[in-house]
Every structure is written in structure tokens, then in C-alpha cells.
Design a protein around this nucleic acid. Structure first.
Lengths: 177, 177
DNA sequence: GTCGAAATTCTGTAACTACTGAAATTCCAG
DNA sequence: CTGGAATTTCAGTAGTTACAGAATTTCGAC
């Protein structure tokens, strides 16, 4: 196993750091970074050696990455060990991550908000102001996720073209304001 | 200080939980939730009592919320204690949070990626594949943040109208694909 | 089936983060 | 100024999460 170049190290370390900021375990994020820049699938031992973490740690981290849906197990000819590769396409990768975060965090949030609002309605007067604020939050999450559902379905080229339109969007849609 | 209703508790606890998932300290998020649904500014002691955490903990958490820019210190007539209130408008609040996360996390990411790419160019051959992948990532972040800069500037009514257009967006922009 | 390699699970420990309570500081009112 | 309340800082502790290494299980070749 070839050691990482300076550049590769810098990237892997920073990606790991970013992970922690967004609630992802550092090692998990580092492994993902490593697989992302690797031109070939890697086996668990190589990963452990490269990042100098325990084999067992790599095993659980890979499980998590697979649960996120951005890393998959593959086999390479003439090697019975499991190998792993990251999703290759950046846009698709973020789509998968966002879908997963929506499922894990936003959807339960919507459920809780709806429950709370129903509960608060019964008890009017007591919780009138709370109810109003929760409705505002719910409205926000519903609008943003509804919109996300729309754009996530766009194929990448359409999505990037759309994003790069810039000012034209506003004009085309008559959203001057 | 009035104790929280069932609904309020449920919301505050869940918001705290959500916070941790996104790298925000649980208490910090709970305090924010509390201030968000509170019709009036609260002082540190009330917050500490309501959430049963130490006064000192409230103090540091409030500092952090102020650093995020979504909570501010206010004074109420005839009370020399500091009081705090959350930003009221949900859309504006998320704009502020996203701006801050961009500044803290995305911008440094862009810097690192650009540095890495420059570095990798010098050393061609050795890091050709890495360079290519990092370029893809950079392109992704540049496009998305560039787009965000555009839409963040829209006043809320325009933004929500835009998001609710749904299918019409695709058609209006000829992004059928 | 059996053997050896690979992978996973588990348990104890280390590292880190969050938190409390005490001490120190700031801020006013008088 | 001085005294008392409010706030912040700090140091130690508790709680949590991440991790290594050992034990166990799985897997495939024979």
C-alpha cells in the first residue's frame, strides 16, 4: 500500500475535520475521503494502514458509510478480500447524502412539529403562541423539502445549468422584487 | 418562571436532539428552541431553571448563540438583568445560520481544495487522479455556493414563491431533459 | 466437512466534550 | 467609592463517544 502524498493527506485530514462539524465521525469521513480520491477500490487493511487506525475501527466505519449509501463493497479479481469504493459522481453523492439526512432528520422533525401542533390545538390559549411559531417552522420545512424533492430529480447537467443561470432565474420567473 | 407545557417540552427536546445531529451542542440548541417559542425575552436564570442546567452553562451557550447571530441581548424595562431573544423570522434565521456555516465550513473547504489542486499541479503524474477528483469537488462547491449567494439575496416572499413554483421552474427555464 | 484468512463483534480504555459549582469579575445603585 | 446583584471565567468532574486489541464468527478453498 502506497502512503499518501502531501496533498492527499491534507485533503483527507480536512475532510475528516469537516465531517465532525456536521455530525459525522472523523474516521468515517477520512475513510470516505480516502476512497473518494482512490482510483481503485481498497480493502480494509490498506485503509487501516494508510490512516493508521485499527482494523476493527475501519470495519465499523465502512458499515456506516455503506448505511449512508455512498460507499459500496466490491470484489477485485484474484483477491478474496472485500474491497470498497466510494460513489464517483460528486453531485450524485451529495444527492444521496441529502436524501439520507432528509430521511433521518428532516422527516422526523416534520412529524414532531405536526404532532406538537395538533397537541397544541387541543390546548388552545395555553399554547397559542407556541403553536404559531411551530407552524412557521413547519411551513419552512415543508416548503424547502418540497422544493428539494423537485430539484433532486433533475439530472445533474440540468441542475448545474439551472444553478448557473444566476440572475436570469429571477428575471425569467418575474421575481424582481 | 412558568414551566414548559408538554408540547413545548417535546419541541425543545427534539430541537436539542436535532442540534447534536448537525454538530451543535444539545444545550445550545435547547436554549435556542426555548427562546424561539418564547413570546418574550428571557433572562439567564429563567432559562437555567426551565431547562434545569447550570447558570454558567447558560451563559456560555448564550454566547455561542450570539456568535451564530441568531440570538441577541435585549433589556426589559425595570429589570437590570440581561434578557435574550431569538431571531423571530424563520427564513431569516436559516439564512443567518447558512451564511455562518458557509463562512465557517464551506469557505475554508474551498481554500483547502484550491491549495491542494495548486500543489497537485506541481507534482503532476504523482497526483493526477487526485487532482481530477478534487477539481470535481471544487466545481461542486463553487457552483452550489455561487447559486446560494444568488438566492440568499431574494427577499423571503420572492424566495418562497420561487420554491413553490415547482414544475414550472423546469419548464420556464427550458430544462426539460 | 476442516483449515486458515478475513471480517465482525465486543469489551475495556482513552480521549474528548459538556457541565457543574466555585471563584472572580463586572456592573450599577446609592 | 462601596455593596450587592448579575454575569463570566475557570478548574475539576461526569458523561459520552471513539477507539484499540482480543475474541468470535464468517467465508471460501480444498
Amino acid at each position: 500500500m502506497k502512503a499518501l502524498s502531501q496533498v492527499q493527506q491534507k485533503f483527507v485530514l480536512h475532510w475528516g475535520e469537516m465531517g465532525t462539524r456536521w455530525g459525522i465521525n472523523r474516521t468515517v469521513a477520512q475513510i470516505h475521503a480516502l476512497l473518494f480520491i482512490s482510483p481503485v477500490p481498497l480493502n480494509a487493511e490498506d485503509i487501516a494502514d494508510t490512516l493508521t487506525v485499527a482494523r476493527s475501527n475501519v470495519s465499523t466505519s465502512l458499515k456506516e458509510l455503506q448505511a449512508w449509501g455512498i460507499v459500496r463493497l466490491v470484489h477485485v479479481m484474484g483477491d478474496k478480500r472485500d474491497h470498497f469504493e466510494s460513489m464517483k459522481d460528486v453531485w450524485e453523492m451529495f444527492r444521496v447524502v441529502l436524501d439520507e439526512r432528509k430521511k433521518r432528520e428532516v422527516d422526523p422533525m416534520l412529524t414532531v412539529l405536526r404532532d406538537c401542533i395538533i397537541e397544541a390545538e387541543k390546548d388552545k390559549q395555553a399554547d397559542e403562541h407556541t403553536e404559531a411559531k411551530l407552524r412557521e417552522l413547519l411551513e419552512f420545512f415543508e416548503t424547502t423539502t418540497g422544493w428539494y424533492q423537485q430539484v433532486r430529480a433533475l439530472p445533474t447537467p440540468a441542475l448545474t445549468r439551472f444553478m448557473k443561470l444566476g440572475d436570469k432565474v429571477r428575471k425569467a420567473l418575474g421575481l424582481g422584487e
